[in-house]
Structure formats: structure tokens, C-alpha cells
Simulated scan of single mutants.
Amino acid sequence: MSRIAIANQHGVLWARTDGPLSAPVSLELETAVLEAATVGRYQVIVLDLSQSPTVDSSGVGALVRLQTALATKGRRLILANPTTAVADELRLRDLYAFFQISHDLHPDMDQEELLLASDL
């Protein structure tokens, strides 16, 4: 049973996983998001991390690979609503600024609102 949900919300690809972002879920999420973004030709991809209590090195690696792969194709990845533990792990690894991270995002927001909602 997959713990990954992917949906089209106002032309934006929203992906979410419930539970820790660790192996093998992180690899499954990475593959699913890349495939869905490519097939659907989405320009903005939101990864909702509100239900991911923790992230380990495989999860961090998957996030970095996703960011890199999408950016090289001219697409935007937004990490939405990360839990404190996930945000702290990205800061600890000096990766927080590598991503566009935003809190208080929801699927009803349109693409422009999402792109302007970056945390500083």
C-alpha cells in the first residue's frame, strides 16, 4: 500500500507522503514525482511535507535529486509545510536555502500565489 498521494490542483502537481521520508519511501516518492511532472508537463511541483515527521539521509538525497532534476528542466519545486524536524534537518545539512520552502501553503492556492509564498 503506497503512502504517496499525487494530485493536480489548479495546474500544479501536489505530492505528499504520510510518514517518515526515508528509504524506500523516499526513492518511490522521487520516482513518482519525476514521472508525474514529466508526463503532465507541470511547471510547478509542490511537495507537502506536513505529514512527514522526520527525514533521513536517503530522504534528503531524494529531495536534492528532485530539486536538481526539476530545475534543470526549468521547473520549480516547492517544499511546503515541513515539520520542525524536517526543516531542522535541512538547516543542519546547510540545505534549507537550496530549496524554495514555504509554510502555510494549501492546494487551493493558484500557481502565482505559490511562487510568491517563499519563506525568507
Results as ranks from 00 to 15, higher is better:
A36W: 11
E112G: 13
Q100A: 04
A69Q: 11
D104E: 10
T84H: 15
G61Q: 02
L49S: 02
Q100T: 00
E113T: 10
H106S: 13
G74T: 01
E113A: 15
E89T: 03
M1N: 08
T54C: 03
I101A: 06
I45C: 15
T54W: 09
T17Q: 11
T38H: 15
A32H: 09
R3D: 09
L105G: 05
L34A: 07
Y42W: 13
Q9P: 12
V86H: 05
G11E: 12
D88W: 08
R65D: 09
E30N: 09
S2Q: 13
A80F: 10
R41G: 12
P53A: 02
L70P: 05
T83V: 03
L27W: 13
V44W: 06
S57C: 13
Y42I: 05
L34C: 13
T72K: 14
V39G: 10
D104R: 08
D110R: 12
A87K: 04
L116M: 10
V12C: 14
Q51K: 10
D88L: 13
Q111D: 12
G40L: 08
T84E: 15
R41K: 13
S50P: 07
T31L: 15
L90R: 01
L95R: 00
S2I: 07
V25W: 10
F98W: 01
L34W: 09
A85C: 04
G61S: 07
V64D: 03
A37S: 14
T54R: 07
A15K: 05
A80R: 04
A15R: 06
L49C: 01
E112N: 12
M109S: 10
V25I: 11
L115A: 04
L63N: 01
D110K: 13
V60H: 06
Y42T: 02
E28V: 07
I78H: 07
G19D: 02
V64F: 07
R93Y: 06
G40F: 09
N8C: 11
R16C: 13
P24T: 03
N81Y: 06
T68H: 11
L105H: 06
P107W: 09
G11K: 12
D108I: 10
R16F: 11
Y42C: 07
L47E: 01
T38C: 14
A5P: 08
Q51G: 10
S57I: 05
E35G: 15
A87S: 09
H10G: 08
D88M: 12
E112H: 15
M1E: 07
K73E: 14
L115I: 02
F98R: 00
A15G: 15
D56Q: 02
A87Q: 04
A7P: 11
W14T: 06
E28W: 13
D119S: 10
L116K: 09
K73G: 11
L49D: 02
L92H: 10
T83A: 08
H103M: 08
D110W: 15
D88R: 12
G40T: 03
P20W: 01
Y96F: 13
S118W: 05
V44R: 03
